[in-house]
């Protein structure tokens, strides 16, 4: 997805002088071509995330469309106040692009894990929040949103899914509609595991790449079903909760630092986000529903 980000932005920058790249010493080699072609619009600014965001806001204030990019928790947790005030409150736009989604840097431990970025940024007024899951989504949504008058957050991962989805901003995708009483809702790259888990189960499956604004109209279509949110981050459950009075459950992160190493797959398995565990969680909900129905 990072390579797609670079390719899309490079293509756009060839036609659009307003694009400026601001890096926190990440993905620098990948942007080598961009640097060579547009040396005055490429800044590997340093490991100073607060200032990266403030500078991005300043660039935006003067009509540029900047992309600030570095590792997820360092940009979004450390610089939350700069995003909140310098971008959102000042009403300066700009594009915040992170790598290292959730457990992408599993082996680096909890300092490099990203749990809260989507949830935190979703609460900021003016913000657009995207949990991108595929290369197609990266390409389409950068193109559609990079000139947005609002600050836009794009969360990238090294483990994209390859499933065809609606790439329109603010729209979700119904991947399975069986008229079932249980609907699984998910977002981002974990769709790979969710799809595998649910493929032959009698459930509906709905996917989102845009967490803010969330596609409320689509959620309303499944209001009469029980909703099981399966997500490897915080933010989607809260976004769906904007639609009042739903019957919802969350299957995802524990309220703990996931203090293991290994790979993203190792950690997903440990916390129940591998395909088999997700399938088991969905089957449990189905069984509980059947039991409740029999009791009635």
């Amino acid at each position: 997805m990072r390579a797609q980000f670079k390719n899309t932005v490079s293509e756009l920058a060839a036609q659009d002088d307003s694009i400026v790249i601001v890096l926190g010493d990440i993905s620098v080699y990948m942007f080598k071509d961009f640097w060579e072609k547009h040396p005055n619009r490429f800044y590997n600014m340093g490991i100073c995330e607060n200032t990266l965001v403030s500078v991005t806001a300043g660039l935006s204030s003067q009509g540029f469309n900047p992309f600030v990019h570095t590792i997820c928790p360092f940009l979004t947790d450390r610089s939350l106040e700069q995003i909140k005030l310098d971008m959102c409150y000042n009403n300066f736009a700009g594009n915040i692009v992170t790598c290292g989604a959730t457990f992408d840097y599993a082996w680096d431990g909890a300092t490099h894990h990203a749990y809260t970025d989507l949830a935190s940024l979703r609460m900021l007024p003016n913000m657009e929040v995207l949990h991108l899951g595929s290369k197609r989504e990266v390409d389409a949504l950068i193109r559609s949103q990079y000139r947005s008058p609002r600050p836009t957050y794009y969360r990238l991962s090294d483990h994209p899914h390859t499933i065809e989805t609606n790439t329109e901003f603010g729209k979700g995708t119904v991947l399975k509609d069986e008229g079932a009483p249980l609907t699984v809702m998910t977002a981002g790259p974990i769709l790979t595991n969710v799809m595998e888990a649910c493929r032959d189960l009698p459930v509906n499956l709905v996917y989102f790449h845009t967490l803010k604004p969330i596609d409320k109209a689509l959620i309303e279509q499944f209001r009469d079903t029980e909703i099981l949110v399966v997500h490897d981050a915080y933010g989607l459950y809260e976004a769906i909760s904007e639609v009042p009075a739903l019957r919802m459950r969350y299957h995802g992160l524990p309220d703990a630092f996931c203090g293991w190493y290994g790979t993203v797959h190792d950690i997903r398995k440990r916390i129940g986000l591998d395909p088999a565990s997700i399938r088991s969680a969905v089957q449990t909900r189905l069984a509980d529903r059947s039991q409740a129905a029999r009791a009635r």
Binding site: N50, S54, G58, Q62, L85, D86, F92
Partner: peptide, 30 residues
Amino acid sequence: RTKVPGVEASTGSLGHGIGIAVGMALAAKI
């Protein structure tokens, strides 16, 4: 800045305005 003419950036939390000013100066250079 959205309310007062002549105010270029909304400030209050310390240590922010200078970073925005750096971005503005960089924009002028570009």
